[in-house]
Design a protein around this nucleic acid. Sequence first.
DNA 1: TATGAATGAGATTTCATTCAT
DNA 2: TATGAATGAAATCTCATTCAT
Lengths: 204, 204, 204, 204
Amino acid sequence: MLDNSTDFKEQMVEARRTQILMGAAQVFADKGFHKATTKEIARKAGVSEGTIYNYFSNKRELLLAMVQMIATQTLRGSFFNNPPDDPKEFLLLLVRDRYRLVDQYGHIFAPLLAEVFSDDELREAVYQSIVMPIAQVVEQYIQKYIELGKFRQVNPVIVTRALIGSMALNTAMKLALVDNRYETISSDDMTEQIVELILDGVLK
Amino acid sequence: MLDNSTDFKEQMVEARRTQILMGAAQVFADKGFHKATTKEIARKAGVSEGTIYNYFSNKRELLLAMVQMIATQTLRGSFFNNPPDDPKEFLLLLVRDRYRLVDQYGHIFAPLLAEVFSDDELREAVYQSIVMPIAQVVEQYIQKYIELGKFRQVNPVIVTRALIGSMALNTAMKLALVDNRYETISSDDMTEQIVELILDGVLK
Amino acid sequence: MLDNSTDFKEQMVEARRTQILMGAAQVFADKGFHKATTKEIARKAGVSEGTIYNYFSNKRELLLAMVQMIATQTLRGSFFNNPPDDPKEFLLLLVRDRYRLVDQYGHIFAPLLAEVFSDDELREAVYQSIVMPIAQVVEQYIQKYIELGKFRQVNPVIVTRALIGSMALNTAMKLALVDNRYETISSDDMTEQIVELILDGVLK
Amino acid sequence: MLDNSTDFKEQMVEARRTQILMGAAQVFADKGFHKATTKEIARKAGVSEGTIYNYFSNKRELLLAMVQMIATQTLRGSFFNNPPDDPKEFLLLLVRDRYRLVDQYGHIFAPLLAEVFSDDELREAVYQSIVMPIAQVVEQYIQKYIELGKFRQVNPVIVTRALIGSMALNTAMKLALVDNRYETISSDDMTEQIVELILDGVLK
DNA sequence: TATGAATGAGATTTCATTCAT
DNA sequence: TATGAATGAAATCTCATTCAT
């Protein structure tokens, strides 16, 4: 078989996988993982139920595949190579970039996080593929600034999770529509306030 | 029927409900809500499956009842009436008290939070009964100190969720055993570092 | 719990198992094991599909249970203790007793034998529980008569299977209605002819 | 279209059918008819799933086609025309020839026989195409020798099935590896003992 | 009120067969 | 004619819930 024929096939397979994943993401978002039926996923994805199983070995694999899909949306290399010197600029760039990811894949995150509580393997995958990569960047940055004497002697691990947790809960509140005071808070304002809060907490 | 007879009966009913809830909590913690079977809950609770339905109308009600059970573990009135003047003392007392709650009911929180992502009513209940009461105390305290000129002009809503989110994610990391660096961090250290971080972020 | 209550419960369980097995036997006989659906088994047995699984862990267990049921229909102890001295009398008694079993459980044997070809565990069970016990009796009898000098020096293992195989294929022909010449052959005639055939083959 | 072109085409078709049947035979032997998937048959046969359906109308047809394939392996004409006069020679020649068939097609027989119990049409086909032709030869031979006064007044139908059943069960025992005493019995010994057994049973 | 056997709706998954390329 | 992706019917099995005792 010729190379471009193989390529073509691979592309078709990838396109089909994505098509199915998107359907699954919608249904998972609506119903949650357990109440989502393969029948409805198939309908939303525009394929038959059987076709799902030509591309994923079972329903749960759909969740794991979503983790991988999100994980590939990494930070641009430029960011890693030349992180801005100004801490505020650094954190704002980073946080806004990740916030955009949540905005884009928001409907995927919720069912994913829900299952993380009861699925050990999924939890590990989410942590290793999604949380760790970004957390490491922040930790190392903080560590460097502590050594430079610009930050207080804080624990970078804790502070990093504090930043992520602060963003996560506030974002969740915004998306969950459970507290209407969030309607008047813009994402940019929220992001900036949180970055400043944490930053002032670590600055000497 | 005499009053004390009614009381006795009510107590029996309450005791049975608790007995069942405790069984359910254990199984939910082990398996998650969906993979927990009523058969196993009954066994763990030491009752028959049928009996569960004499006290709860369905499996999901067990989750809602757990929210109420946790919600009753409110802060002591004394805390509300005479909150410590020193912000650090205030926040530490508060956070440690809540942390104790998580320690005690930790196995209930995970399955509860998992379902919060896909169950609107449960989400509302958790927010109103568990998050809001404590959040309000913090918000009002922050508001007061802003007005007193001791805190910067921050948004109390955001800062409060930042504090809660910081504690939540760090605690989750500790409990999830997914990052072994948390093994060397004591709860007290963690709590104090987070409180200081947020506090330094809001102090003028 | 009192003994007779336990007994009663055990009897109920046994009765239910038998009820389900009988339903399964009918459907297996009609359709064969694989084309038999649990839905139809349930209907024939007069229970719901779910009930089947309260008594058998899966569809295949129904087959194994049938083997056990047939296996319990052993030869009377008197037969073992005082086998008739006359070889012809001995073999006729034995063969007719077993033939009666086939007559009674005939509809169970067919699907059982069909699966024996592709299910190792079932094959082992059928051999150990059904074939071996009866085969051993015959083998030992033949062996004894060889030693007494009344039978030729034949291999008791082969001769025993020859007898069983002769009976089996002729019986199958009768039951399968595939050769109408069998319509005019009575079971008793057939049995006697086969016993005589084998016996004359071994007698000195 | 020219004759030899048609012939060539027919040969190609026949070759393809055989290729597919051989693949199917292997998988049927491994898994049994029902657990064999068309996907695996296609793989073993070295064709695609679709191609199977260009040569056979459905999976079951594969079984029927196997019956025909075995049926064509008939006894040599010479055997029919000049059967040996000596009964023992006659039976040994016949039985050994058929035993060779089982040896060669053994892996096909098991799944075939399994289905025979629940598939009326297949049963009829096996009986008419495989059992009957050989059985008739034996029956007529026996009949002739009875008339010649060399055999007792036995029923040729029963005796013939007794011979076939004796061979079948003993052979099955050997192949099924379920009774290790068969490991020390050679096929030739077994064949001869059975022929002698039956023959002594019918000889005057 | 407590029990637990019975229920049956419903979900996942398999796989023979079809059909566009 | 060959391919193999797509199909969707159908089957097994689970389990929350009911109800007779």
